[in-house]
Amino acid sequence: MNVRLRLFAVMRTTLGRSHVELELPDGATVAQLRSKLAEDYPALSPLLPTCLFAINGNYARDEQTIPSDSEVACIPPVSGG
């Protein structure tokens, strides 16, 4: 399946784009997405250990599977306030 991953803040400015497309096996987990992102975009790799991921607007654990057609986002450490 093709996953369109939204990027924000330091992830967005590091790549200079607000989303990337990743090709993952059907039923892939967040952990697999994380590895694939590091593999396809090595520039993001050092930032990934501190990032969380969200599926359809909810924080997702690494073992969670990604439903097809869901909105997936990479959430670097937040700094609101």
Binding site: P76, V78, S79, G80
Partner: peptide
């Protein structure tokens, strides 16, 4: 405010008077 700072997906970039900028973490 404590929860907002750790949970809500909002980010800030600091722009300094010397023209440089950086993303801030918590």
């Amino acid at each position: 405010i404590d929860q907002l700072k750790v949970r809500v997906p909002i980010w800030k970039q600091e722009h300094l008077t010397d023209g440089t900028s950086r993303w801030l973490s918590q």
